[in-house]
Design a protein around this nucleic acid. Structure first.
Lengths: 107, 107
DNA sequence: CGAATATGCAACTAAAAGGTTGCATATTTG
DNA sequence: CAAATATGCAACCTTTTAGTTGCATATTCG
């Protein structure tokens, strides 16, 4: 899970995910066209995405195809985002209470 | 949005969010008790969380209360996770196609 | 087979991030 | 007012990260 958050932290990697979102199963060279960076740089980014299981590589001959894996994002959404979203209303009321607490205190 | 992803990338910062999730509106010193790190270190982390608007500070006298702001997480969920979740089925079928493509190719 | 294509691996550099120490500032309290 | 409390700011160090260059390896194609 930490690997997923770390992987998502970099804009280039998010761009790669977006690119695969546009067209899934692209080769390394195809992905290189959209990002101005050396192939080796992109390989590194893809390596992290793969380690985080956000992208699944698939060899076909000498080509390496890259496919999105939505599972980790789903997990993050469920175990993290939703959990905090659930606390949304409470958080807001807490904040409001905090603001209210401002007035009576500095009497 | 980049700031949010960057802020979420660090385990200590996620721990801080979790801590605030347990009890919202904690002061800096309160938060320090749960994480073994100097106060100044935590201040830095909180600074990033605040800059990413994930946490909203509120001064009450000499104390600084910290409140969760669920809005950025909601945005990420909507603009990022859901977008990719929508492609979930397509991604899986793509991957399957890719796997199928493996067989006929190396004839 | 030899050339071209697609990718991997390792070393290196520059910049950023995580964390610490030391001191300054503001607020409360006796 | 002085002491204690709560926090901020800046310099510094160490580790990680992003990215490059250079070369090696595997697959396809003529």
């Amino acid at each position: 899970m930490d690997a997923v958050f770390k992987a998502l932290a970099d804009p280039s990697r998010r761009a790669l995910l977006d690119q695969l979102h546009l067209q899934n199963g692209q080769t390394l060279n195809q992905l290189c066209r959209h990002l101005r960076m050396t192939r080796q740089g992109i390989t590194k980014h893809l390596g992290l995405l793969i380690k985080a299981d956000l992208v699944v590589p698939l060899w076909r001959g000498r080509e390496k195809l890259h496919y999105l894996n939505p599972a980790p994002l789903k997990q993050i959404s469920e175990r993290w985002i939703d959990k905090h979203k659930a606390a949304c209303l409470r958080a807001l009321t807490d904040l409001t209470k905090g603001l209210d607490a401002l007035k009576p205190e500095p009497n």
